[in-house]
Design a protein around this nucleic acid. Structure first.
Lengths: 194, 194
DNA sequence: GCGTAACCTTACGCACGAGTAGGTATGCTC
DNA sequence: GAGCATACCTACTCGTGCGTAAGGTTACGC
């Protein structure tokens, strides 16, 4: 039921998607959509929530907190790209539509913030284990960069159906963990399972 | 004249912005907007073009092709974040509004592709100078990651008026060039001018 | 002083889409 | 089999906002 809404929203965008379109694709009539799911805005928020929750759970389930940092990063990335590869429509709704649309910016921003916090917390944990300290803002900004890079690659993945999510995760891990200089120097990041 | 349109589009979003709003802020009446700039869609594309051209020129002007790779990256990043810091409205229009809106996805995608190509070309050049070869897709994907990370930090910068573009560029350079592992190990990237 | 032309405004037509009122069929109770 | 409820659809109202047609104002030529 929500699946039809996600499909339509992902293809046409929030504003261009009409409730008639959604009702038609779902195989029911418009008043039914209103009866079951409320207004258009509530419907979109419901889509956002479902897809967002699924994604966060997929990632959180994969990256257990007691693993070493690089392993957590790798598993989180793999889960993330795996999700995007398997739910391209959901990703498009979550990321491409909700941006900028004022009513939903908050919803998305909150989710994004949670992801950034998780990444920042991971880095902070690794640093403290090492006995070092670093500015909170620095950590936050680095986490933003990592999340942004992942989102960008997710977009790339969504537009390239032939691409392999696993390999995309490997590439992201390489650039995030090693940095461009190391990559240019020939160092490669060894994935746990080749 | 276009400035008013950029302001309104950046604050209210493409769909929510009415031509009446734009005309009012510009201090003229609606038919004049149509006389000078055509339909709403053409107007938005015009905004997109102007801001996009300005940004690309700012970056291209800063990162001369004959510099070493790390210096080009650094100067390009500095120009990019400087632009975003100085034209936050323009950035919001370019990036936050155009995403997802089908009619303009092409315009933005083309610009983004150009930036990715520039970064990929830069990396390829450095690799060839080193006598090494690497898959074209790999380069493209790494470039996507770097561009995405920069965009994410640009968003962060746009939302934090107190933040310093220069310092943001430094942070981006650190994570892109050194990678998270190096950062955690305590290595820092030395900016040319402290 | 009067026509005229450039320029601008007010006020409207029109389409589109969100949300709803009223009507119809199907199954359940007595 | 009559009465009722549930589930659903067709057809409508209403607001909103793009794009434009008709009318006013100022400056200049004659």
């Amino acid at each position: 039921m929500l699946d039809a809404a996600v499909r339509v929203f992902s293809r046409r965008g929030y504003h261009a998607a009409s409730m008639d379109d959604i009702a038609e694709l779902a195989g029911i009539s418009k008043p039914m959509v209103y009866a079951y799911l409320g207004t258009k805005e509530e419907l979109f928020v419901a889509c956002l929530h479902r897809e967002g929750t699924r994604m966060l759970e997929a990632i959180a389930g994969a990256a257990a907190p007691d693993l070493p940092t690089d392993e957590r990063l790798w598993r989180g990335l793999r889960a993330f790209f795996g999700f995007v590869g398997a739910h391209r429509d959901g990703w498009a709704v979550l990321y491409r539509q909700a941006r900028g649309s004022q009513p939903f910016a908050g919803e998305l921003a909150a989710m994004r913030t949670r992801m950034v916090e998780v990444v920042a917390g991971m880095l902070a944990h690794a640093l403290r284990a090492d006995g070092r300290e670093v500015g909170e803002t620095d950590l936050e900004v680095v986490a933003y960069a990592l999340v942004g890079a992942s989102e960008s690659l997710a977009d790339w993945l969504a537009d390239h159906p032939e691409a392999d999510p696993e390999q995309t995760a490997t590439r992201m891990m390489s650039v995030a963990w090693l940095g461009a200089a190391q990559l240019l120097a020939g160092t490669t990041w060894p994935p746990p399972q080749v």
